[in-house]
Amino acid sequence: MKLPADYHMHSEISGDCTAFMEQMILSSISKGIKEICFTEHLDYDYPEILPDIPKGCFEPDMPKYISLYNNLSQKYKDKITIKFGIEIGLQPQIVNKNKDFVSSYPFDFVIGSIHLCEHDDPYYPDFWKGRSVQDTLRLFFEDTLKNIEVFDNFDVLGHLDYIVRYIPDKGLYNYSPRDFDDIITKILKTLISKGKGLDLNTKALKYPNTNQPNPHSYILEKYGRLGGKIITFGSDAHISEDTALYFDKAVAIARKCGFNGYYTFEKREKTFHPFT
């Protein structure tokens, strides 16, 4: 099976990644991937939670990014197509900053992601204190809806139910997207009305006791039933070994959910590719 393009990966340009861009490219080539897109992190106004995460940690060095991208995409042009992307962290108070940033560079592809909820990061245990898991997940989905209502200069929504990766005591809570069907349906209808797609993100498949990507197959299938067509595949790789992570399994999930192909982007214009 020909693997889909990997449209969600990071390199040393992202504040939480130390893998060199060239390592990510070489790993992708070795796995037979024909196209990738770097989507380096931009998260303005990220809170200073820990001393090892300094202010501005998730604001990329764009001159360095552009230089690396230009040099390496040219160096490997006969072996792989490499696109220039960004993963924008969405928060209501930085809508204008995000708009200005996206319009300042010739990106091929933009992911809009929710990494913070009410200016806090669900990756850290303190985020979950003081409310139930159910209420916390609903808060996250409600915040997602608010963000995509006020900002739409992106191509796909990143890892829609990303927050479930970090639920404390996962063995004691059985996540079901059906419990949040009302708010998830509103999110999907909003995306479809704005012509936006979904990042079929396989990173969660790496986690113990997880057999679902982000978003969950229930959400992916509902997106298709509601009229959504645009999906991209993303490993969310932060180390070279994880490029195209579980893409064979993700393709099987997408097929089962009614999709017969995926999209790539160039200068923000999308192209459909059937599964082969």
Rank of each mutant, 00 (worst) to 15 (best):
Y263P: 06
F259Q: 09
Y262T: 04
R255Q: 11
D242M: 12
K270I: 09
E241W: 10
T232Q: 05
G261T: 11
G234K: 13
A244E: 00
A250H: 11
I239V: 12
E241D: 13
I231L: 00
G234A: 12
A252H: 14
F265D: 01
E266T: 14
D236R: 07
A252V: 13
A252Q: 14
I239H: 09
V251H: 04
Y246G: 05
F247T: 00
F247M: 07
A250T: 10
T271W: 15
F272Y: 14
Y262W: 10
R255I: 07
S235V: 02
N260W: 07
E266G: 14
E241A: 13
R268Q: 11
Y246V: 07
F272S: 08
D242W: 09
L245T: 03
T243S: 10
S235G: 10
Y246P: 02
K267F: 15
G258C: 11
Y263T: 01
F265E: 04
N260V: 03
D248A: 07
A250L: 12
K256S: 11
F233H: 01
I239E: 07
Y263N: 08
A237L: 01
G258R: 15
E269M: 15
K249T: 13
A244Q: 01
H238W: 06
Y263Q: 05
K270W: 09
A252F: 11
T243G: 09
R268E: 05
G234H: 10
H238I: 04
A244F: 01
Y262N: 04
